[in-house]
Amino acid sequence: MDKAGMEMDLAIALFVKEQQERAEEEKRARIWEKIDPKARIKYTVEELAEGIRKGELFLYTLKMEFTPREVLAGRFIMPYIKDFFDMEVDKSEAVILLSNKRKVSASISDVPCREVAQPLDEWVSQTKEMMEEKHLRIKPVRKKSLGKMEYFCFTLPTAEGRLYNVAFRLQKGDRLYTGALNCPVEEQEGMGLLLEAIVHIIWEMNGQEGGPEDGGN
């Protein structure tokens, strides 16, 4: 067989091998899709909030335990995830919690405030403008009012990929508490909903006033 024929046979053999490997990858993907808990299990904020109230839940295969925790020198209470965060800063003026393994973070701070905060829509618009000034374009996903607790969810591009954020604010006494919780956007339907549920429980732990009022999308 001449050189050209050998090269042709080699090219055909490589093509067949690539096709076989692609077929195997597609087969494995189909099998994984059937057993992947993220493809089979769907959550709601309400059921995740109920799990937090009970003190434990499973997020897919991850068991999570919660306990009430006072932060900001005892001025504020939040549901704390046990054995989850690997970095914690808890000072009088701010609390920061970070899980490098899960790529989840939470931060809360407060300031004296006797004035009524601007309406929710204005807060969302103001946040978008502030981010655009930093050349960051956020995409609001959902917003909601729970009495004096208000929050909105949005995605944000970062150097490490898009993040799913839940930003909240709560007027309590003569102080305004603000916070942000985030996770990778790929975890939006799991961890993202859990972070939103945590905000609901924060509202419950810090005094509910008024009933839920959906702010729409």
Rank of each mutant, 00 (worst) to 15 (best):
Y60F: 12
T61H: 12
T61N: 14
T61Q: 07
T61L: 09
L62D: 13
K63H: 10
M64H: 05
E65A: 06
E65G: 00
F66R: 03
P68G: 15
R69C: 02
R69V: 02
E70R: 01
V71H: 03
V71K: 03
A73G: 03
G74C: 10
G74R: 07
R75S: 11
R75A: 11
F76M: 03
M78P: 00
Y80H: 10
I81S: 05
K82N: 10
D83M: 08
F84R: 01
F85R: 01
M87Q: 12
E88W: 02
K91N: 04
S92R: 08
A94V: 06
A94I: 09
A94P: 04
I96N: 07
L97H: 06
L97S: 06
L97W: 15
L98N: 09
L98Q: 08
L98V: 11
S99G: 02
N100C: 09
K103Y: 09
S105E: 09
A106K: 03
A106S: 10
S107Y: 11
S107M: 13
I108G: 04
S109W: 13
D110H: 13
V111S: 03
V111P: 02
C113P: 01
R114I: 00
E115I: 00
A117E: 13
Q118N: 07
P119A: 15
P119G: 13
P119T: 11
L120Y: 12
E122W: 06
V124W: 02
V124S: 07
Q126D: 14
K128M: 09
K128G: 03
E129K: 08
E129P: 00
M130K: 04
M131T: 00
E132Y: 11
K134H: 09
K134P: 01
K134L: 10
I138N: 05
P140S: 05
V141Y: 08
K144G: 08
K144H: 06
L146A: 15
G147L: 09
K148R: 11
M149F: 15
Y151A: 02
F152C: 05
C153G: 10
T155A: 05
T155W: 12
A159M: 15
E160S: 09
E160D: 14
G161C: 07
G161A: 04
R162M: 02
L163T: 06
Y164R: 11
N165R: 12
V166T: 15
A167E: 15
F168E: 14
F168Q: 13
F168V: 01
R169S: 11
